[in-house]
Design a binder for these strands. Structure first.
Lengths: 235, 235
DNA sequence: TTTATAATGTTGTAAAAGCAACAATTAAGA
DNA sequence: TCTTAATTGTTGCTTTTACAACATTATAAA
């Protein structure tokens, strides 16, 4: 376990950019890391960070790399909930729900560094009664609320009845967020299928069909949403 | 608009029982309602409480009755996210995410009374610098985090590939929460179909099949989950 | 009690999904 | 560069769904 002293300048930049630490001064951030005994932890590609069933007391902030949050079911289906890169958190909902057990897997999607934070240390005002606690908790409330809206959005994709509609719903939401008709998505085909909870090969054919019909264009992870597609989802 | 003075004893009981106001004394609760200008509002059955696209500054606590939170898509499908009864909140994630627009509908499922609370008033310490603010915000963090876990659970139902699996996933989760093999569910058939994002009639046949195969039994909203069903989902 | 209305169940058909096996393409390593 | 592995695309078959139309059963109102 590495102490805060090993945090690099780049780490601090990521931390500062995180919504979690918004409006906190550099000194306050220093204090948080010291008072809560936050530690940096490296994970290599594919390594499990959190297991289904784990008791969750800590949550993590991604410093570099990215993590996948996935929910696997009885029948062996992999359901990707989200992919989170630098500045994003994971497990924060479990940590702040109080005594919750994880019902997801979290694993390193590539070589990844995590800043591990303890939820309780943040919730309980330390002896020095640091003022930043209140700011931090307000930030956490906002972050957890936003995660909730993200999950809401994911639900609107997976509840679509056909693979075609799921794809269009997802691509349209990326378009809305980026404001651009061409964009890269963070998933490869298998991951996208697991994210939308559909069969990869069926999704692949549907993508081909959408391309032939002139609704979208793509190559690898780069997609273009054409006017015809926006018409089909009544934007 | 009715002021706090019109809150009945029963209302106060509901408020006290809500996770939102946990660990707050009666006086503190009084203060919250006074300081934040919380108001009680009645809605009649079927009335819309919040619309898709609304800017959300307030959130609600259900005092009596119940509300449906629903997300309707381009193709006319109704997707019920949740049904919330006395003591539960709605729109809290939008309100605390900061400047969020609603992407859901909320409507009164029956004659319903709501306590409308202002998120900003809770977030900003009032001139009297009431101590309860901090308790309240911690509670809100916990409540929003728990809603998030609930949504996670809903996702695990709707991402199942077949109607049969969706039903078993849902019924099993009710079983896990209640700890009992027989229980009432809060939805009628159409609502359950909208909750699981499947066709009502197809779901109805699947329910019949599950009953004939001896996995479940039911009549109206009362369900029994038999051993054979638990085996099928590998509990 | 009778009648109207809502809720639930049933069935047939067309469309779509899941699955498996394999082909083609791309990326990675020797 | 060549070879191997991973990713992506394609196709046929079987299962399941969505949809529509209608039957049956409950519920509420007159």
């Amino acid at each position: 376990m590495l102490l805060k002293s090993t945090l690099t300048d780049k780490d601090y930049e990521v931390i500062k950019s995180s919504k979690c630490f918004e409006n906190l001064s550099d000194e306050e951030i220093e204090k948080v890391i010291k008072c809560t005994n936050a530690v940096k932890k490296p994970y290599s590609k594919g390594e499990t960070i959190m297991r289904d069933g784990d008791k969750v007391l800590n949550f993590g902030l991604v410093l570099s790399g990215s993590v996948m949050i996935s929910k696997d079911d009885f029948w062996g289906n992999i359901n990707i909930l989200d992919k989170r890169g630098p500045g994003r958190l994971y497990a924060e909902s479990f940590a702040f729900a109080g005594n919750a057990l994880s019902d997801v897997f979290v694993y390193a999607n590539e070589d990844t560094e995590i800043l591990l934070l303890n939820a309780n240390s943040i919730l309980t005002t330390c002896e020095r009664s640091c003022d930043y606690h209140n700011k931090l908790i307000r930030n956490m409330l906002s972050v957890v609320a936003m995660e909730n809206l993200d999950m809401n959005e994911k639900i609107s994709h997976v509840t679509q009845r056909t693979t075609r509609q799921k794809l269009l719903s997802y691509l349209t939401s990326v378009y809305k967020h980026t404001g651009k008709c061409t964009f890269d998505i963070p998933y490869n085909r298998q991951e996208l299928a697991d994210y939308l909870s559909v069969d990869r090969s069926a999704m692949s054919s549907e993508l081909g069909r959408l391309k032939r019909e002139g609704l979208i264009d793509y190559s690898k992870n780069h997609f273009q949403l054409k006017k015809k597609a926006l018409k089909e989802v009544y934007i």
